[in-house]
Design a protein around this nucleic acid. Structure first.
Length: 492
RNA sequence: GGCGCGGUACCCAAGUGGUAAGGGAGAGGUCUGCAAAACCUUUAUGCGCCGGUUCGAUCCCGGCCCGCGCCUCCA
């Protein structure tokens, strides 16, 4: 099945297919590692994860390159303030990023590319542009892209810059540019700043050049898809197109995907607004990684997603419902045979689910048939009308669901544990919610012992003691479920 | 100012020119020692407002109101 994805460049839904008929070559702008990742960053990366997983589910393998911007103005400034080389400054944030990446169960891109490890490729690109007459060196040794050389500039963001007057907004330190909107390809070294000695002079890369150079390095001069947050559309991606297409005379990326921003309580998230959350903040508040993943992913990527704690609580309930049902199926015990109704329900759910994903990654719509199937199946199971072959068919549908959403298996303990260890190490234990600390005080073995004691109490009809134990466990976030097959427990 | 997006039940949210998916929450019920889980019933004659096109519009067109984003570092 072919995925139809909105293409910023054409302004319409275009089929997303590999030009070479092999793997789909995609480049996604990754993080700038000057701080811990916030939920806005992760909403974007998660939606790109949904894309790559959906592609694979629908039969298209991917070759996904993600960059790490480990040199830029902010990094240089912060590292200088901390009095350390930029590599030492960025490394902890890079490690933290991948830890968070894993906590949210994002699949590793096939290639991770760090800007500082691709300086030669960038230099070569600048030289190529210079040869084309599209780049020039300013008096201070910086290199700029000559915007006038690329008439198509603005085709991605639909901006008409022809009316822009030169000199309208010239930064004081950029007076050497020929034209105000020319952007830096290479910045001349300033005293004390990180720089590289290269054929085009001593300096460091401009912001946009890294993505062009690395995308071409790993995907070729022309590739299938380029993705990123909506803010990157202009000027970042526009500049990438200009410098890449001037250098190669080929179309850079055929398809452009932009993920809309996340809001918090209806406002743009920002540190000054006091509504800024990192993934770690949420984990320390006791929310599970799977619920955060589901919440950030359930509103389709082209819509603003308004993050609220109510919404996160809702996602938590949704994850519980999915898992409870999944467990119920896995527990087995179904009579041999099949029912035509359940077979048909499973077939229909699977088809609708896939179709929704193929339709511009409509995750909200994709969820619906899954939950519908769950209700139908629960009813059938209650009435003894769900058989072994039905259970298998439904599990297959859930497998499809989880191939993209990836929340069914409870792997939430590890991210929380890691977040707590980090809080401990970095002196942030005061940010940890007391309930979480209480929950951590119980080991699985401890829970099992209390559960056993309660079962014994119940046998002797000592319900007072049994309820006491249940309440005690509840206070520490452990929920019990009695059933005729025994007691099940789970952490909230 | 330029560009763009949205306004659907208590909350989140999908959707179609023919009369409103799904999730969460609430209420009642079945089941249970009590719970939990599960299931059933229940919560929009209406989809921001006003016109228009149409046999018929939430969905198409026009206007208006409100909210948000981008245009500058930003995912």
């Amino acid at each position: 099945m072919t995925l139809r994805l909105f293409n910023t460049l054409t302004g319409q839904l275009d089929p997303l297919t590999p030009a070479d008929g092999m793997a789909l070559r995609m480049y996604a702008c990754g993080p700038t590692v000057y701080d811990y990742g916030h939920i806005g960053n992760f909403r974007t990366f998660l939606q790109i994860d949904i894309l790559r997983r959906a592609l694979q589910l629908l039969g298209t393998p991917v070759r996904h390159v993600m960059n790490i911007t480990d040199v830029d103005d902010k990094i240089i400034r912060n590292a200088a303030q901390a009095g350390m080389p930029i590599g030492d400054y960025t490394q902890p944030y890079i490690d933290a990023f991948f830890e968070d990446f894993e906590s949210l169960r994002m699949e590793r891109p096939e290639q991770i590319a760090r800007a500082t490890e691709h300086i030669p490729q960038m230099v070569a690109l600048v030289e190529k542009l210079a040869a084309e007459g599209a780049a020039y060196k300013a008096e201070d040794g910086s290199w700029y892209f000559r915007l006038k050389s690329f008439p198509e500039y603005g085709k991605l963001s639909k901006k008409d810059l022809s009316g822009m007057e030169d000199g309208a907004r010239v930064d004081v330190d950029e007076y050497e540019k020929d034209s105000a909107r020319d952007f830096a390809l290479w910045k001349a070294a300033k005293p004390g700043e990180t720089s590289w000695e290269t054929a085009i002079g001593r300096g460091r890369p401009g912001w946009h050049i890294e993505c062009s150079a690395m995308a071409m390095e790993y995907l070729g001069e022309s590739f299938d898809l380029h993705a990123g947050g909506e803010d990157l559309m202009f000027p970042h991606h526009e500049n990438e197109i200009a410098q890449s297409e001037m250098a190669t005379h080929k179309q850079f990326a055929r398809h452009w995907m932009h993920v809309r921003f996340l809001l918090v309580d209806g406002r743009k998230m920002s540190k000054s607004e006091g509504n800024f959350y990192t993934l770690r903040d949420l984990l320390l508040k006791g929310y599970k990684a799977s619920a955060i993943r589901l919440a950030l992913v359930s509103v389709p990527y082209r819509h603003q997603f308004n993050f609220t704690f109510d919404g996160l609580a809702e996602a938590t309930s949704a994850v519980d419902r999915l898992r409870t049902f999944h467990e119920r199926l896995k527990a087995g015990g179904f009579a041999p045979g099949e029912s035509s109704q359940m077979q048909e329900a499973a077939r229909k759910a699977k088809a609708e689910y896939r179709e929704a994903l193929a339709d511009d990654l409509n995750t909200a719509e994709a969820r619906a048939p899954i939950f519908e199937l769950i209700r139908a199946a629960n009813t059938a199971i209650d009435q003894g009308e769900c058989f072994a072959a039905d259970s298998e068919a439904i599990l297959e549908v859930l497998k499809d669901f989880d191939a993209v959403f990836d929340v069914l298996e409870d792997r939430d303990a590890e991210p929380t544990r890691r977040a707590l260890a980090w809080a401990e190490k970095s002196g942030r234990m005061n940010e940890v919610t007391p309930e979480l600390i209480a929950a951590q005080s119980l080991t699985d073995e401890g829970i099992e012992m209390l559960v056993a004691e309660r079962s014994a109490a119940k046998k002797t009809r000592n319900f007072a003691r049994a309820d006491q134990i249940r309440n005690e466990l509840a206070e520490k976030g452990v929920i019990l479920e009695d059933s005729k097959d025994g007691v099940r427990w789970k952490r909230k």
